[in-house]
Amino acid sequence: MKMKKNEIFLFSLLIILSCVFLFPIAIVVMNSFKTKFSIMGSPFKLPDSETFAGLDNYITGISSADIGGSFLRSAFITVFSVGALVLLCSMTAWYIMRDKTGIGKILYRLFLFSMIVPFQMVMYTMTYVATALKLNNPVGIIAVYLGFGSGLSVFMLAGFVKSIPRELEEAAEIDGCNPIQTFFRIVFPILKPTAVTVAILNAMWIWNDYLLPYLILGNRYKTLPVAIQISMQGAYGSVNWGGFMAMLVLAILPIIIFYLFSQKYIIEGVIAGAVKG
């Protein structure tokens, strides 16, 4: 019986903690339904008949090109950068692990090295190079993400390539496959679990990334985090808090939905990335 009492206590404690953890998100969601002048100063007040704004913040927010456009731009950049990273880094990882000339080893070391370099070290010069090469647009930035994200991606995929038995590839070769066929028919399907991990880690990074798109795309092509940050830089009185809350919710919502549907992969992926990185 004593054991049971302990369990009830622990269970209640965990319930309370869960509420504490969910509280900040709940506050933002609640305030996104309040009128813009009733948010700052009294964020904990529930909306009443006077301060309830319905979906106004979302409707005005999304129809003002800023939020809707930023949302779509963020989605575009995330999807294509992740696609490029997964496909091209898998190919690169396989090549450098199968290469016997020594170039593979050098490249592997370089990719590994790039993982420990903080963004601030290269932000100024990277912005300069990207602008000089006209990569400062929503398509060009995909190349920048491919380059800056390739370190972790190649490293993780190469680690998995190591465990693929060579016999499989040799058999394919004897059957007349060229390296392209061998890679796409044999290697890539085996790489899938790691490719999923790499995709998740990169998607979370790119969707939430602020400084890189701000420096490279700036005001002209705002991603969602950039739009959020910029809208707060205006004079204090001019901030539309209602629209701002709606923007925060729109930035969180896709990740949470994605998370609730593929939780297992996300948690596993994040752990794998942590342990290797």
């Binding site: 091209l88 010069t125 300069y128 990207a130 380059g147 190649v154």
Partner: peptide, 22 residues
């Protein structure tokens, strides 16, 4: 050129050169 060059080119542009310049 097919397997490595695209990644490597992007890596050089957005990491190697900026790092050395920095």
């Amino acid at each position: 050129p097919l397997f490595v060059l695209p990644t490597l080119a992007a890596f050089i542009i957005s990491f190697i050169i900026p790092f050395a310049m920095g």
